[in-house]
Design a protein around this nucleic acid. Structure first.
Lengths: 337, 337
DNA sequence: GCACCTCGTGAGAACGATCCCGGGCGGGTC
DNA sequence: GACCCGCCCGGGATCGTTCTCACGAGGTGC
């Protein structure tokens, strides 16, 4: 007899109370087929009465499953991203799907390089059934490491290091094309862009999309590089106006930078959209409240999170998945263009 | 002989290679004292050579520790919070401390009521050594449930349901007092407030702070309630101006709402700070880029996260902690007041 | 020089589940 | 009526650690 406060019931306890064996209780708990209804009921009652909850450690020791998925977030990604809403949006999407599948989410923040080793070790211990990699900078080592370890993994955003693990991304190029075509349809003649950092996929692909669309229209491109922050949008816009005062439209690779750009335009007394049209990217919450409200490219953040979770769960259960899933983007028309 | 690709080394494997017993290897792994340097070295070499990583499931089965901490986030909190930067800030703070302590972070998003049961069950299974509760709405059941289960837990923000578990919060009242006194020192005569929702501590305490400070100065209070969103700031400010055109200052309980308020003031052609001074709360990143830049009360978000982690780790290791830790806030002077 | 104590090491019993395998029982077929 | 085939259920091994306890060697005190 042990302290009833601390002594948690085990399979054994339940089995005795229900008058059956451990194996049978296990079958009932895990919903196996061949159990007589009467017995099943007796076990259920015992479980209920004792408040039995299976011990996950014991379970995963033998089953070699942990029912949990890791989300690895390299710090640069977390810090740089256009806004935190992106991160939390993805998180909610992932959470929703894992929830439905009754899996846990383990968050691994890679803040320091030291930390990186800690994470790899953790992953090697097979403490999780699968890994989701948040979007990465340049030559991030995680994808190939994970592939080498044989851990089921998917990435958010096309990994720049090459196609070694499957990924989910949004249609950057298509979104930008729609934006530029919208500007062209308005009769804009001189369309510039404020691009994102060129060591991130989002930065690279959106710039490529702009270049392609502008070239297709037989126009010259005009590019300034920012770093996805509001401040960089402000200064980049100023440089653009200095270089080419005749600009009548600008595609900005993030809403945050677009806010900054709007500010410069206001200071320079350029009317938006009359003198200069502005299109952003992200459809951040702030896009509704800029002056004027921002026309922007919406990306399905929540859906991305859900898809990430779905794919990694598939991989974890042994199925195979497409090497890439590209989710559609959508131009949202407001007043800035 | 098993497949070397899948067969992970165990203590036994390491022990054989090093020519010692399992127990000794275990001692070395866990850094116990009494091990001869020579033996320790031999074991270290074997571990290195085999790439041995302890199996967490086996370990926690016997040790009854899991080396992981859960962060429980009720959906309303996540959705409503002034901005997602708050959440991610807390997260980073927690991450940093857990990292230093070599603990994992398990994220539990309470999106639906159904989900709530799932979370409680998970927590009852003792899958984590401790729990951090993200800030809660009104009468959230988690604090008392956790207390009843005897799981070490701390809350972010004073739980409204009463002092059943320790918490970390910032000095809302002190911050607001500093803000109001700053306005008084400028000779402002009619100081209004836009408060947050009155079912959240942040909303309640900041309003209380305002009421206290204004009363102390022998002035009447003038209150409009918002919900921490930009839009609610816009409309609340309009109502305030309608009610009392003579307003010459307003304390706004969040920067996001302050942005909305600035917008209304701009539309109504009131100059800030000449005609109306505005002070926000949070020191969100956007506060630097409003026009004019926002004077606001900074709360130590990152520090809050770190403290949450520190306290829950203390509790988990059996120590006791103060029932409440209040971190200081600071008035940041910019141009809006 | 004998008893005692300390310190490093090993043997073996848990921890609490899953899962394979075999035994018992009931019913259908010849 | 005997045989056989399924279907349920139980026994027991197993997963990979930690931890208690016992043991032996070497140093110290008298």
């Amino acid at each position: 007899m042990r302290d009833t406060r601390t002594a948690r019931p085990t399979l054994e306890t339940v089995a005795r109370l229900a008058g059956v064996s451990r194996a049978t209780v296990s079958r009932v708990i895990n919903g196996s087929e061949g159990v007589t209804p009467g017995v099943r009921e007796a076990v259920d009652r015992a479980v209920e009465q004792l408040g039995y909850v299976p011990n996950p450690a014991a379970r995963s020791l033998v089953s070699r499953r942990t029912d949990s998925i890791a989300l690895v977030v390299p710090e640069p990604a977390a810090r740089m991203f256009s806004d935190d809403a992106f991160f939390t949006g993805i998180l909610r999407g992932i959470g929703q799907e894992l929830d439905a599948a009754d899996k846990q989410l383990v968050l691994l923040l890679a803040s320091t390089p030291a930390n990186h080793g800690r994470i790899t070790r953790y992953l090697r211990a097979r403490t999780v059934d699968g890994v989701i990699l948040a979007s990465l900078h340049g030559a991030d080592p995680f994808p190939s490491e994970l592939a080498a370890m044989g851990v089921p993994a998917v990435a958010s955003g096309r990994p720049l290091s090459g196609g070694v693990i499957p990924y989910i991304d949004v249609d950057h190029v298509g979104g930008v094309r729609a934006a530029v075509e919208h500007l062209l349809a308005q009769g804009r003649k001189r369309i510039a862009t404020i691009a994102g950092p060129q060591d991130m996929v989002a930065g690279i692909d959106r710039l490529a999309g702009y270049r392609g669309a502008v070239a297709a229209a037989g126009m010259r491109s005009l590019v300034e590089i920012g770093d996805f922050t509001r401040e960089s949008g402000t200064t980049a816009m100023r440089r653009l106006l200095d270089d080419e005062p005749a600009i009548d439209a600008v595609f900005v690779a993030s809403d945050l930078m677009a806010e900054g750009a709007l500010r410069t335009l206001r200071r320079e007394r350029r009317r938006v959209p009359e003198d200069v049209a502005v299109v952003g990217f992200d459809d951040a919450t702030a896009a509704r409240s800029t002056e004027p409200p921002l026309t922007t490219v919406r990306q399905p953040i929540h859906e991305t999170g859900r898809m990430l979770a779905q794919q990694v769960l598939r991989l974890a259960s042994g199925e195979s998945v497409e090497p890439a899933v590209i989710l559609p983007t959508e131009l949202v028309l407001r007043e800035s263009a």
